[in-house]
């Protein structure tokens, strides 16, 4: 099976990476504010992922081949006593060959609890459980040919790193903190990265840019988030660019439409939605009407 399980996690980035509110001062508190921000109790998103090889022209990244494009819809709802667990359904719309493939993912705040994932393959007509990975190995597989790997897509956990404030500088015209994150000894066994630098908007607590260093402490990836916008009182960034400096490929993630805090029934985020197409389409049709 192709590693299409990654779709689930691709959409996670829009829920955990592009939204922000809050305030704090020490590096750890700044990160806490950026990670544990209000992202709505529910979120419905339509997004596009485009990936290609690039070349640099006048400091711009330009595709040198026809991009591979994937379009999907995702519905997330938070659960648990602190609303830190979440359930997410993702349905593929494009390309046509993958249309109808669906994913269900349960994420847990507890770092000892592995993610639960299922995929519905329309070609097989069957729901399959997906392996979520090993605690002691980095998850470096690509998400369906995008430059995001599994780890890039996971929601960050504050407990996994130690933090240091490196600088305060302007980026994208915004005042930012630059925070260095170093994995703890436990997390370093699983992480693909030895260090992460984040540019965090001081006012909005948005991640504007992230630089990732591999295990040999070489800069390998740069994630840039831009096109900020307030939707339903929550800051989002409509676009995210992943530049893989090693492979000279990039993936751009665009939030085409999003809405927060719409009512989502608990039974929608179950295996039923993957197989019961009448039930799924009926509910998604309602969500589509509220998308912005």
């Amino acid at each position: 099976m192709r590693s299409i399980k990654s779709y689930l996690l691709i959409i996670t980035v829009t829920f955990f990476g592009l939204i922000s509110t809050g305030f704090s001062e020490t590096p750890k508190e700044i990160m806490r504010s950026a990670i544990d921000r209000d992202d709505g109790k529910t979120q419905v998103t339509r997004l596009t992922l485009s990936s290609c090889r690039y070349s640099k022209k006048n400091r711009k990244l330009v595709c040198t081949e026809r991009p591979r494009v994937k379009i999907m819809e995702g519905i997330r709802k938070d659960f648990g006593p602190d609303q830190k667990d979440s359930k997410l359904i993702t349905i593929l719309l494009e390309p046509a060959s993958e249309r109808g493939i669906g994913f269900l993912q349960f994420d847990y705040d507890d770092i000892d609890k592995e993610t639960d994932q299922w995929i519905y393959l329309s070609a097989l007509g069957k729901v399959k459980r997906i392996i979520s990975g090993n605690e002691y190995e980095p998850r470096d597989g690509s998400f369906f040919g995008t430059e995001f790997n599994y780890e890039d897509m996971e929601s960050r956990n504050l407990k996994n790193c130690t933090y240091k404030l490196l600088a305060e500088e302007k980026y994208q015209g915004r005042d930012c903190w630059v925070i260095e994150s170093i994995p703890t000894s436990r997390w370093s066994k699983r992480s693909n990265y030895s260090k992460t630098l984040d540019w965090i908007d001081k006012e909005r607590f948005l991640f504007l840019k992230t630089i990732l260093y591999n295990r040999q402490v070489k800069r390998v990836k740069r994630i840039t988030n831009y096109a900020p916008e307030k939707v339903n009182g929550i800051w989002i960034q409509r676009k995210r660019l992943m530049n893989n400096m090693e492979t000279r490929r990039m993936t751009r993630l665009t939030i085409d439409a999003v809405v927060f805090n719409v009512p989502v029934r608990d039974d929608f985020l179950t295996l039923r939605t993957l197989t019961d197409k009448a039930f799924r389409e009926k509910n998604i049709k309602k969500f589509r009407k509220s998308l912005k």
Binding site: R46, L61, V62, C63, P67, V69, E94, Q172, A227, A257
Partner: peptide
């Protein structure tokens, strides 16, 4: 920060609502 600073030389644009 405006569109000129952002790579928009991407072709194959799809997916806008």
């Amino acid at each position: 920060l405006d569109d000129e600073d952002i790579d928009e030389s991407w072709d194959g644009e799809k997916g806008s609502v």
